[in-house]
Design a protein around this nucleic acid. Structure first.
Lengths: 225, 225
DNA sequence: ATTAACTCTTACAGTTGGTGTAAGGATTGA
DNA sequence: TCAATCCTTACACCAACTGTAAGAGTTAAT
């Protein structure tokens, strides 16, 4: 049966949720340490994440965004914060549903099943907010535009998207693209970056790759131009 | 922009909804006659349906079920019925989200955008039983094998799969592939069939394309060999 | 069995897109 | 100002896709 990961710092709520969900036949794994929640969630390979918003260290919002950029989901946010702007923010960052505590168990289960069903029929796209990347086919979807990236372009984009907003080192790019960081000619990476930037420009995604001098490259937001 | 169909019998509410949605840039079509709502909705080819539950004649539940059986969606139920069992029932019948009136416009818009985003990323896989074909990317999934078909191969497979178990005429294949049935050299089709058969063999799908002499080609089951 | 219609296979060449190399120009920051 | 770093453009090679050509193989009716 599918595995649900519960991300909730309140022990009592966590166990209550676990009971509800296990009664329905799902296996459950709870995150109890909140030092590296994103890594812990990914390691569990969940088929659904039940996510609280008020957490120690990293907020639920940040976790939400990080998971979606890594193609992890679906995410059901379950929180006591009933402010509309929290809901809007969570949905905007990629949450797939938003429920407020207290929540009737049957409603929770129904929403969980809905999302499971939906995701069974879905592309698993890496979500970067205003565009999405299919890492299997290297298709990039930006609004109503879509374009097929080449292998190199796709691999670079995958690294940029999954690491965002962090900087991806040149060394890692070389490792992933050419199997070694002991490269002879650094220029080939620059050429491929130029080509990728040009391709992105063709679908309206200009100035999205920032160069970090001496280090590597970084995916940045498109709003501020 | 995407077209939203509003199914709501209260004129006042309908116009209010229409304002909210149009302000967001969507085009709107409202169902005002409720004699044949399902047919009317389908005729509008909506990219999303905003559905009330309390309607004359056919109930929202029935409409929901009928649309989902026809592959139409997404459906966002917006109703004043705040009973949990109504929500569970609607979700069970295929509704993709369930909101209760009164609903803040921003919440409604956020949920609409969420569903649009979800549905835009759905796999549309043609299912042939023991293998699937993605007609957008020409990816063919056979068990744990997957392979990328060329344009010609993909088009031929699409025709064979969607028409199966019927025979696809050579004329139709020529029309779809080369834009005309007044072909000069019939051989090119045969060459492409040979190539496709070879490609299918590489993922364990041998002897699946049967030649119907003088007519065309046909996708057949693989079991009997 | 014969034969004409139909189908399959293989080889070849043109086109296209992806990739790496090379060379020189532009930018950055001390 | 100047050296390190980065960007851009042009060129050539390679692989994949496609259509053409030629000949071999198969089918079904006589």
């Amino acid at each position: 049966m599918a595995k649900i990961v519960i991300v909730e710092d309140d022990v009592f709520l966590r166990e209550e949720l676990q009971n509800i969900v296990e009664k329905e036949g799902y296996s459950v794994e709870s995150i109890s340490s909140f030092d590296t929640p994103v890594e812990d969630i990914m390691a569990a390979e969940p088929s659904l994440i039940l996510l609280d918003l008020n957490l120690p260290n990293l907020s639920g919002f940040q976790i939400c965004r990080a998971l979606k950029a890594r193609g992890i989901g679906p995410i059901l946010v379950l929180t006591s914060r009933n402010q509309l702007r929290d809901e809007l923010h969570a949905l905007e960052l990629g949450a797939d549903d938003y429920l407020t505590k207290p929540c009737h168990p049957k409603r929770l289960i129904a929403r969980i099943q809905k999302l499971q069903h939906l995701y069974a029929n879905m592309h698993v796209l890496l979500d970067a907010g205003d565009f999405q990347l299919d890492e299997r086919t290297n298709m990039l979807y930006a609004g109503r535009n879509s374009i097929s990236l080449s292998e190199n372009e796709g691999m670079i984009m995958k690294l940029l998207v999954t690491r965002a907003p962090a900087v991806v080192s040149k060394e890692e790019l070389f490792n992933q693209l050419w199997g070694s960081s002991e490269y002879v000619d650094e220029n080939i990476l620059q050429v491929n970056m130029t080509r990728l930037r040009k391709t992105l420009g063709e679908v309206g995604l200009s100035n999205r790759i920032k160069t970090v001098r001496g280090v590597g490259y970084q995916l940045v937001d498109g709003e501020s131009g």
